[in-house]
């Protein structure tokens, strides 16, 4: 075989002195800056494409149920909502259970009218059993849906 690299076994270190050198290598890190990010005060690095919470534009949803079909684990359930929308004759809109949502972005990709999309919002703490967002709650920003 052409590209096989025989890895040599490293040499046996000198018993005591190598340990002292190893401790010195640790000591170098005393002078380096800590990498901790103190979360509530400092925000971690959030790139432009970072995605978490699903939003819904009620006016452009056509009720095609594609998002419900493509959702891998059934987190999206269509729900009846009495609302005037000429495009949505059946009056069904998606509701999302964030307890099981895996943020796979399939619903965003499949939506023909870009009604359902994911956003940067990730601070969505909830009590137990209140992870389900109805279509109306999905269309509101996070601070208005506090339960």
């Amino acid at each position: 075989m052409a590209n096989v690299k025989e890895v040599e076994e490293p040499k046996k270190p000198v018993p005591v002195f190598s340990m002292i050198r190893g401790m010195g290598m640790l000591g170098k890190n005393l002078l380096r800056k800590p990498v901790t990010i103190q979360y509530p005060e400092q925000m971690p690095y959030i790139p432009e494409r970072f995605r978490f919470r699903i939003f819904l534009t009620l006016d452009s949803c056509v009720g095609c149920t594609l998002c419900e079909q493509v959702c891998p684990n059934g987190s999206i359930k269509m729900e009846h909502l009495d609302r005037e929308n000429p495009h949505n004759k059946r009056k069904i809109y998606p509701g999302v259970n964030f307890g099981t949502c895996t943020v796979c972005r399939n619903c965003e990709e499949i939506c023909p009218t870009h009604a359902i999309y994911l956003s940067h919002e990730f601070q969505t703490s909830r009590t137990k059993n209140s992870f389900y967002y109805s279509p109306e709650e999905l269309s509101k920003p996070e601070h208005e849906v506090l339960k």
């Binding site: 640790l26 890190n29 800590p34 990498v35 901790t36 103190q38």
Partner: peptide
């Protein structure tokens, strides 16, 4: 320990 491990 924290500073050696680059924590706070």
């Amino acid at each position: 320990m924290a500073r050696l491990q680059r924590r706070i």
